[in-house]
Design a protein around this nucleic acid. Structure first.
Lengths: 337, 337
DNA sequence: ATAATATATGTAATCGGTTACACACCGAAT
DNA sequence: ATTCGGTGTGTAACCGATTACATATATTAT
């Protein structure tokens, strides 16, 4: 059943039916009633595909994130989804699993599906292909909003957090708690937040007059398994660190896993402070100190930013780049007692 | 830039370009090269919207779930997404937040967007509107796969778990650990898993010759806040239960929150066993006993079921209904020492 | 040498909507 | 009486692909 068939049944033209459906143009009250009745009766559902083609507008946005199983990202999506729903946009979901090839495929999908906009946490800030594709997409009038991870060039709108300051304050908290043997498990070198958090770490140490120790700086990948390995490596050093700065929530979990296996108690035998809070642990009052932010809110902000562009149809001359606030929450794991 | 413009530039017809793009029909090697070159040069990306309209096929499926922030569901999505990606399907994501109105809106979206199939964890099994809509959708040739929550009538394919047996075994474990004052915080009455778990609970008690105690059976909503309240209510009874069976992961977290506040230690002052594992707690070896299942795998299975239907284009005469296995994992919280 | 078949390409209808434009009718203003 | 703006409706072009069908040539079989 399409609009023409329906129109024929009713005895009007497809234009009239279309006008009723879209509440546009002039339609007599009598005709409107007839049409609505027929739509109801025949359970007619107009094709959004045809509509999209006709008006060159899909009302769909693409959401590309690296790891849906990470609470941080599922909260982001929750926020995006909330705002999208309210504003009538649909969500085309794509999970890259930190895979650059997949990311690029998905960017092709964005173009071919004629999505109206895109919210993305890119896998890497250095990926030239991704970068170029995003630039092209944006140049073609499809707004791009970055979340969490920036891309060099500052060409895109985005919602970030001040990773450097956050990490700095976090590490400072460790220092103030008396530590001077502080290790870090970094994120991937290709990740901007990872690098910025690393910078914050280094700056804090240097500001406190603590020299950087190669052995204390291990590179992770924002995942549990690697973090676990790194933690093991750190604590097996001859002169192991007394505190670890962990670059994200999963990294922190990797640390905790190793600590637990080794029967090390945080805040007692080992200190740790991690970027991003872990909701589940709050339930059991697990004394983990963190640099926290509101992920869901960050998702909302991102979607609102995108909506702004979508409505104004401006290609960002001056990209809008916002930071969500972070909070250093000290629950005890920062000092040894 | 559309296919006709491009064709004109190259000096061929749009049909030829289309043939090259889709690798269909006959095209001389020479022409193919020219076309591919031009596509590359002009960065031509064919419109999937137009294609969808033309071939009456969107290669998109709808995924409708109640709570993306619940790890169980984000794992489900991860599994779905993995298989979808491999098979070339795109995902239209919709989160209902347990809201039936939203759910119905989303089902309309499925129809209007001409999605090819749908994987859904419905809000309630009793919602007549949802039920009718799903039936209609399926009758129109769009396969429906249920995940986790069944709908009465057994008209749809689905991937579930044997909730009754799982709950039964879980509660039995509590009984075998010496409990006879066992409470339950149920799911919503409208939820099939909630009800089946409740049944399993009751059957276990009856089989063990323990009579049901009204005060010990509180109805929750699968969310933390309510579970917290229920736990409080249970433990403030004159004769409080010594063990709680919790109907899902968030309910369990609500319990733990209250326990923690009251300085009650699981496996010591209070026992608990919950449906669904909590990954984060495994990292810190938190001794929570659970009935666990592999959510990601469940997502994969669901998507494979859908693919099956998508490929065979059969409207299920006999719906395929699978169960994923569950595992009762006793870590200590089931008995008091 | 001729028929049959494989290869190569173009024309135009089609998918299902939207909307510019044309036309007709109406009451109000001049 | 004529003009005009507001209503109501239909016709047909258009969005950008796919593909059945027609046509033409090259190749192979008889």
């Amino acid at each position: 059943m399409n609009i023409k068939e329906l129109a024929k049944i009713i005895g009007v033209s497809s234009a009239t039916v279309s006008r009723v459906i879209n509440n546009s143009g002039y339609v007599s009250e009598e005709t409107r009633k007839k049409v609505l009745l027929a739509i109801e009766e025949h359970q007619f559902v107009p094709s959004a595909v045809a509509r999209s083609l006709s008006i060159s507008d899909t009302l769909c946005i693409g959401v590309i994130i690296p790891d849906i199983e990470n609470d941080y990202f599922s909260s982001i999506i929750s926020g995006i989804s909330e705002v999208a729903e309210q504003s009538g946009y649909n969500i085309h979901f794509m999970g890259t699993n930190e895979n650059q090839r997949l990311e690029q495929e998905f960017l092709n999908t964005v173009e071919s599906q004629r999505l109206n906009g895109i919210i993305i946490t890119p896998v890497s800030e250095m990926d030239e292909k991704t970068n170029e594709k995003l630039l092209r997409i944006q140049a073609n009038g499809i707004p791009v909003v970055l979340v969490d991870r920036d891309i060099k060039g500052k060409a895109f709108d985005g919602v970030f957090v001040d990773n450097l300051s956050g990490a700095y304050e976090g590490v400072m908290a460790l220092i103030q708690a008396g530590h001077n043997k502080i290790a870090i498990i970094t994120g991937p070198e290709t990740s901007r937040p990872g690098r910025d958090r690393f910078k914050g770490y280094k700056r804090a140490l240097l500001d406190a007059g603590i020299s950087l120790e190669e052995n204390y700086m291990l590179s992770g990948d924002f995942k549990i398994a690697k973090a676990y390995q790194c933690t093991k490596q750190l604590l097996e050093l001859e002169d192991p660190p007394t505190a670890i700065f962990s670059s994200n929530n999963l990294t922190t979990l990797g640390c905790l896993k190793y600590f637990t296996e080794q029967k090390l108690k945080i805040g007692k035998n080992i200190s740790v402070i991690g970027f991003d809070d872990i909701e589940t642990l709050k339930m059991i009052d697990y004394k983990l100190s963190v640099i926290a932010r509101d992920a869901k809110q960050q998702g909302r902000v991102a979607m609102n930013l995108l909506l702004e562009r979508l409505r104004s149809k401006t290609i960002p001359v001056e990209p809008i780049r916002q930071n969500v606030p972070y909070q250093v929450i000290l629950r005890g794991s920062e000092h040894l007692k």
